[in-house]
Design a binder for these strands. Structure first.
Lengths: 191, 191
DNA sequence: TCTCCATGGTGATAGCTTGTAACGAACGAT
DNA sequence: ATCGTTCGTTACAAGCTATCACCATGGAGA
């Protein structure tokens, strides 16, 4: 075993990472189609051309795969926020970036902010990324010299999650509403 | 077959309703403990002392049981709102009644306003009850002579759902926050 | 180059789930 | 008392998670 520069550049590890990545990709598709509760390791494995238990060489079980997806979702949102902030976004810009990110894959949003599973406890590093997200948000609130940055950040979080999650859940369906206008209206309340 | 006054007062129907009610009760307990996705017809049946497939005489399948629970949840919330409104509640009172109702059984709240299952389509009568809930809310908004009742009702819905769902999901866990104070602060924004 | 072992893939198996089918018992209406 | 609907049972198919034993392969070192 050559230990090899510690970054996974061993041919074996490269292949391993490739398989894991492909599995996660298919898992995302399955989740987008039928929701997280319908995610099946077996189905993913078969779609990859290998038989059931093979995937257990790559993930200890269904839980680890889902946890990995949750981690990726957090990471993706954190990156989106970081990029927006780095580009000099103000609060409305950040809000719209959030909505775009959520609309791109609603189930990904719900994986983070949706109905919690009573038994599940998020691993430490996801809560770390969560803090990173809040920190970025707080930074933008501070840069916009709002009177109370922390209160503004909280309002950003709770109010935008309110409209956004209801929109994504399709709760505005029947009633004749424009979700985007509603979202913009909530943005306008943030100071 | 005696057709009997059309209300289920036939001994057979009484028993049937009883079994259905007990099954739903156990289902609620199971959902409160492990979430809706972990609801198992089999487990409910066994807990009732009867063997697996017996429950299929009472529910066409898992979906019908869950749909029934969703219906009951809507009904319960509609009643809570109706009672509050009848007791002359103003907007803050109604908001606090909502929070109490949600905290009493978070999974019941999420059954209505939580992560949607991509395939599932709610039956017509639940959307009817949903409208009833919105109507009650709109009525209270009108009675409090707010400038724009509909806009106020919408803000009530989206903002309170925002804080409440994050609280119920445990998203405020790590950070040193008082959910009730946060909820009250959002109430104060409703005019 | 050859050996050898960790790695990866397979089928078999246990135990759970949803649901259907076939059979027998019980209950109630006539 | 009879007779048919309803109810509960066991048996079964198909799917899932997850573990196991076994076999092939590929890369690291001699």
């Amino acid at each position: 075993m050559a230990r090899m520069a510690e970054s996974g550049t061993t041919p074996r590890e490269r292949y391993r990472n490739q398989v894991r990545a492909e599995a996660k990709q298919l898992a995302w598709e399955q989740i987008a189609a039928d929701g997280a509760s319908a995610l099946s390791l077996n189905a993913v494995a078969k779609r990859m051309g290998m038989s059931g238990p093979a995937l257990y060489r790559y993930f200890t079980g269904r839980d680890e795969l889902i946890t990995e997806l949750i981690r990726d979702a957090y990471r993706s949102l954190a990156d989106t926020f970081r990029d927006a902030a780095a580009a000099g976004a103000d609060l409305p810009d950040l809000a719209r970036a959030l909505r775009r990110w959520a609309l791109a894959d609603p189930q990904r949003y719900f994986l983070i902010y949706g109905t919690p599973v009573p038994g599940y406890h998020a691993p430490a590093d996801t809560t770390t990324i969560s803090s990173e997200i809040m920190a970025t948000l707080l930074g933008v609130c501070g840069a916009t010299d709002s009177p109370a940055p922390f209160a503004t950040a909280l309002a950003f979080w709770t109010r935008l999650h309110g409209v956004l999650s209801l929109e994504l859940a399709g709760q505005f369906a029947g009633m004749d509403l424009d979700p985007e206008a509603l979202f913009e209206a909530e943005i306008a309340t943030l100071r």
